[in-house]
């Protein structure tokens, strides 16, 4: 599908790269882009190590760590006991003493086990030490939908982390962003949660070969438009683009903003786009109540109120845990069709 082939449009914003971004653009899947990021981080910095349950197995976390243990050895690509909270503390302890760990989880649903270490320790350490001790920890966690994964394996918990000062929360939607943002996080000094939607792993996009860094807090316009702004996160970017394509046939022009990172959030870009279109839809993979979409709407209400020609609409998960059966899954997960109806509702 053409709408899967997207390259980040960074021309609108200054983004600093670790190397010349123009050279060596190849098409890579999101999965391979992440694996390349993992691999280059391990190559370039001996302080980097990967750890997580089963990251060295043949599946390799949806393919993102396949082959890395063979290449870098078990000291740097480490299997882990199923002990998420303790192991998060171990990773934080390593991070504050000179290492740059990447802790990888097959599902974001396992991060609630780690809340104490993430919220009370990782997020607070720099502040409590007067900025003396940084926590260069990257936590990768997978979200997703479908096939009866049900209530404990389909959550999208970015908002929980985005509520916490001291953390960063990134949600790359393209292969290009996945590589650059993860490398940025590993090279940076802030504890960062990287949330990856499992429907993105097969998406293709152009990715430079050299390592490069994308800083969090810079959104990207994936498609320019005049009538309605859709600010989307992660997989919802693709649903938004698909909605935009269909609406274009009717002459409705949609601007799609990929938020890319939830904390920090690119408020300026949201405001700029809303000032242009006058209408806002926030499309997030998580729940509405106190969620990322609420924050997006608040930005518009606080900073672009005069420009709004219609109420803000939000497309999120219904406020229910994820059901197992398919009939309810269909009703549960929002798609481009829901975005289209939302657009119609405010035009």
């Amino acid at each position: 599908m053409p709408w899967t082939k997207i390259q980040a449009d960074d021309s609108r914003k200054q983004v600093s790269f670790g190397g010349p971004a123009s050279a060596g653009l190849r098409e890579l899947s999101y999965r391979d882009a992440i694996r390349e990021a993992m691999s280059q981080a391990l190559e370039t910095d001996p302080a980097v190590f990967l750890i997580g349950e089963g990251i060295d197995d043949p599946g390799g976390v949806f393919g993102t760590t396949v082959g890395l243990k063979d290449r870098f050895g078990a000291e740097r690509v480490m299997d882990s006991p199923i002990a998420e909270n303790g192991m998060t503390g171990v990773a934080i302890g390593a991070a504050i003493t000179g290492m740059r760990p990447v802790f990888i989880h097959m599902r974001v649903d396992f991060l609630p086990m780690c809340m104490d270490q993430i919220i009370n320790h990782a997020a607070k350490w720099s502040y409590m030490t007067g900025g003396k001790v940084k926590v260069p920890l990257t936590i990768r966690a997978v979200i997703g939908r479908g096939w009866g994964s049900a209530a404990q394996h389909s959550q999208s918990l970015q908002a929980l982390f985005a509520h916490i000062p001291g953390l960063r929360v990134i949600m790359p939607a393209t292969p290009y962003d996945a590589k650059g943002m993860i490398l940025g996080s590993i090279a940076g000094n802030a504890p960062t949660i990287c949330i990856e939607h499992r429907w993105l792993y097969d998406m293709k996009g152009n990715v430079p070969e050299e390592p490069y860094v994308i800083h969090p807090g810079i959104g990207a316009v994936r498609r320019e438009g005049r009538d309605v702004t859709i600010v989307a996160t992660s997989y919802m970017v693709y649903e938004a683009l698909r909605a935009a394509e269909e609406l274009e046939k009717e002459g409705i022009s949609i601007e799609v903003v990929d938020l890319r990172s939830v904390l920090p959030m690119d408020e300026d870009l949201i405001v700029e786009s809303v000032r242009k279109t006058g209408r806002l839809i926030a499309a997030d993979t998580g729940w509405k109540h106190c969620g990322v979409s609420a924050e997006i709407a608040a930005v518009a209400a606080e900073k672009a109120h005069a420009a709004l020609k219609a109420p803000v609409r939000r497309l999120c998960l219904p406020f229910v845990p994820a059901p197992a059966c398919q009939s309810l899954e269909k009703a549960y997960f929002p798609t481009h069709a829901d975005i289209i109806s939302a657009v119609r509702g405010i035009l």
Partner: peptide, 29 residues
Amino acid sequence: GKTTGCAHGRGGSMHLVDTENGIPGTTAI
């Protein structure tokens, strides 16, 4: 995934329940 299921299709294989028989629920965490 049917309404006739022990969790009315909401739980699936990982979340069986049968309170009559001393099974207050099962967890996949």
